[in-house]
């Protein structure tokens, strides 16, 4: 299958390893991957802040960039939700509505793609560690990711998954919310860190690097012994 990668801006700039891991896993499974190098951002920061015209200006380019793609696989639940659910809303009633819908139909989040589309749960990964899984909200509630990442983790050799209490609770990131209301965002992050710490896991794993950025940033500042890792990175380990 020819797969067009969707690498969100902050993964490109801060967490390239997450994108690289996804590409490697897909290639190992025998697929051909390509990447539109001019892709930057899906427009979510503007959309979430109420600047829909600005978001549309960025999103229009994205639609054009992926126009000829057969299938698009992205490595973020949140940006994935933007390209599927929210593009439809953003372009509703505009001339690009049909294209946004067609685009959404081609988009897959990485874990969902592996499990639902390809029917693969064992990607041959090995990672001897105790991990707990954080459900990123957009992935969970907009895209319905719940069983998929867990099915993949269950097949990683040596890995033990310990569920934390309130795994479905928001970590407090929420995009611009984190800087507009840092006090609330931080408190939510503290609650999340506490739940994760109680499991004694070595890593918090998630489908969303943005949640992990928030959790790790907070844990580091508060000197909490927590390490985070994206699901793609876990699946790339051999």
């Amino acid at each position: 299958m020819k797969i067009s990668l969707f690498i969100p801006c902050f993964i490109d700039a801060c967490y390239p390893q997450v994108g690289i891991s996804m590409a490697q896993v897909l290639e190992r499974l025998g697929h051909q991957v390509e990447y539109p190098e001019d892709f930057t951002c899906c427009g979510q920061p503007a959309f979430n802040s109420g600047y829909w015209d600005e978001a549309r200006a960025v999103a229009e380019k994205v639609l054009a960039m992926y126009r000829s793609a057969e299938i698009i696989v992205g490595v973020s639940g949140s940006c994935g939700a933007m390209m599927t659910t929210f593009y439809k809303e953003l372009f509703h009633g505009t001339p690009l509505e049909a294209e946004a819908n067609a685009h959404a139909a081609k988009c897959w989040e990485f874990s969902d793609f592996l499990v639902t589309k390809l029917g693969v749960t064992d990607v041959g990964a090995k990672f001897p560690a105790k991990v707990t899984f954080h459900d990123g909200c957009h992935g969970l509630r907009e895209l319905g990711l719940k069983k998929q990442p867990r099915a993949l983790l269950a097949k990683v050799k040596g890995l033990e998954l310990i569920e934390m209490g309130a795994a479905e609770s928001c970590c407090g990131f929420g995009g611009t919310f984190a800087v507009k209301f840092p006090m609330i965002s931080t408190a939510m992050g503290e609650v999340k860190c506490d739940s994760a710490l109680k499991t004694n896991a070595d890593y918090i794993v998630s489908c969303d690097a943005s949640c992990l950025m928030h959790i790790q940033g907070l844990a580091d500042r508060q000197k909490k012994p927590l390490r985070t890792m994206h699901l793609a990175e876990v699946l790339a380990k051999q």
Binding site: C137, R141, E142, S169, F173, G174, F177, A178, M188
Partner: peptide, 8 residues
């Protein structure tokens, strides 16, 4: 704006 839009 005071929401992380988590959807719970």
């Amino acid at each position: 704006f005071a929401s992380s839009l988590c959807g719970a």
